[in-house]
C-alpha cells in the first residue's frame, strides 16, 4: 500500500532554495501515485527550528528533508566539509567520495544522502567599499560561521548579526559588507544598500536531499527507493541553474552592484585562502576524516 513520508524543508516555503524540493515532491507524488507519497509539512522555522531539522531527521520525527550542511553540524560534524566539494557530483559518485560521505551520514546521523540539488551556487563577499586586492584589513563584514574564518584570514573583522538587522547595518555603515550566496540578496532587499560583489565566488554552498536511514532501509521497497533516487538524480543533473545564476548576476548589475575583479594572481590567492581557511576548520573538527574528504572533494 501507499507509504507516506513526512517531508520538511530547512528553508521558507516557496523561497528559492525550497523550490527544487517542492518540485521534487510534486514529481514523486505524481509518478509514485498509489505506492509512495511525500507529505510536505512546510519549512523551518515554521514547523521546527532550523538547527533541529537534522536531529529530527535522525530521530525519525520526519522522513525526508532538504537542508544545507551548514545546518546539521550538530549531528554530523564532518558536514562542515561539504561546502568544499569542488569536483562535480558525477565524479564524486564514481570516485568513491560519495560512498564515504554517505557512510559518515549513515553512521553518525542515521541519514541517507540522496542527492545534491543546488550545484552552481557560490559564496561571495558583497561590499560597500571598493578594494583592489584580496585584503579585508579595516573592513567590518557581517558573517555567518561559514564566512568567518576566511574573512579573518584576509584581515577583516567578522561581525555577527541576525539577517533582519543586516539591512539597517548596511544602510548606516555599521558594517562594510557581508558574506552571502550568489542568489538571495533580493529576498532581503540588500541590493539597495550594496555597491560591490567580489568575484570570483569561493565555496560551493550545498543544498541536499536527505532521508532518514531507517525509513530508507526498512519502510521502503526497492521500487520505491528507485523512484525516489531517479527523480532526485534528474534534479541533481540539471544544469538549468547555470542560466538562472547568470541572470541573477545581471540583475545585480542592473541594480547597480559592480563586480570587483582582482589581478589573476590575486584572484588565485583569494580562492586559495578561502579554501585553506575552510579545510583548517574541517581538520580541527575531524583530524581523521578531514584529509580523506579533501582527497575526494578536490583536485589539487
Amino acid at each position: 500500500q501507499e507509504v507516506v513520508l513526512k517531508g520538511v524543508a530547512a528553508f521558507q516555503e516557496g523561497s528559492i532554495y525550497a523550490q527544487k524540493f517542492e518540485q521534487y515532491i510534486k514529481a514523486v507524488n505524481e509518478k509514485g501515485k498509489g505506492q509512495i507519497r511525500i507529505q510536505y509539512l512546510g519549512g523551518a522555522p515554521k514547523v521546527m527550528p532550523l538547527f533541529d531539522v537534522g536531529k529530527n531527521l535522525k530521530d525519525g520525527v520526519i522522513d525526508i528533508v532538504t537542508t544545507s550542511s551548514a545546518y546539521y553540524g550538530n549531528v554530523l560534524p564532518e558536514a562542515e566539509a561539504m561546502k568544499l566539494i569542488e569536483v562535480p557530483m558525477s565524479e564524486l559518485r564514481s570516485n568513491g567520495g560519495l560512498a564515504f560521505l554517505n557512510k559518515l551520514h549513515v553512521e553518525k546521523a542515521n541519514t541517507e544522502f540522496l542527492a545534491r540539488f543546488y550545484n552552481y551556487e557560490r559564496a561571495h563577499i558583497f561590499l560597500n567599499k571598493e578594494i583592489a586586492k584580496p585584503d579585508f584589513s579595516g573592513l567590518k563584514i557581517r558573517v555567518t560561521p561559514m564566512y568567518r574564518p576566511m574573512v579573518e584570514k584576509l584581515g577583516g573583522t567578522g561581525i555577527n548579526s541576525t539577517p533582519p538587522e543586516v539591512y539597517t547595518m548596511l544602510e548606516r555603515n555599521t558594517v562594510d559588507g557581508y558574506g552571502w550566496a550568489t542568489r538571495g540578496i533580493f529576498d532581503y532587499s540588500w541590493q539597495k544598500v550594496t555597491k560591490f560583489r567580489v568575484d570570483p565566488g569561493f565555496y560551493h554552498p550545498d543544498i541536499t536531499l536527505l532521508a532518514n536511514h531507517d525509513t530508507w532501509t526498512k519502510k521502503l521497497n526497492d521500487a520505491q527507493r528507485k523512484l525516489l533516487l531517479d527523480l532526485a538524480m534528474e534534479i541533481e543533473a540539471s544544469t538549468a541553474d547555470v542560466a538562472l545564476i547568470e541572470a541573477e548576476r545581471k540583475k545585480q548589475e542592473e541594480a547597480g552592484i559592480k563586480a570587483i575583479r582582482f589581478a589573476p594572481a590575486d584572484e588565485q590567492r583569494y580562492v586559495k585562502e578561502a579554501r585553506e581557511a575552510g579545510w583548517a576548520v574541517v581538520n580541527k573538527i575531524s583530524p581523521e576524516n578531514g584529509p580523506k574528504l579533501r582527497g575526494y572533494f578536490t583536485k589539487e
Partner: peptide
C-alpha cells in the same frame, strides 16, 4: 517527539 519539542524550546 517530546524530546524534539524540548530541544525546540531552547531554540
Amino acid at each position: 517527539g517530546i524530546m524534539s519539542f524540548i530541544r525546540g524550546s531552547m531554540a
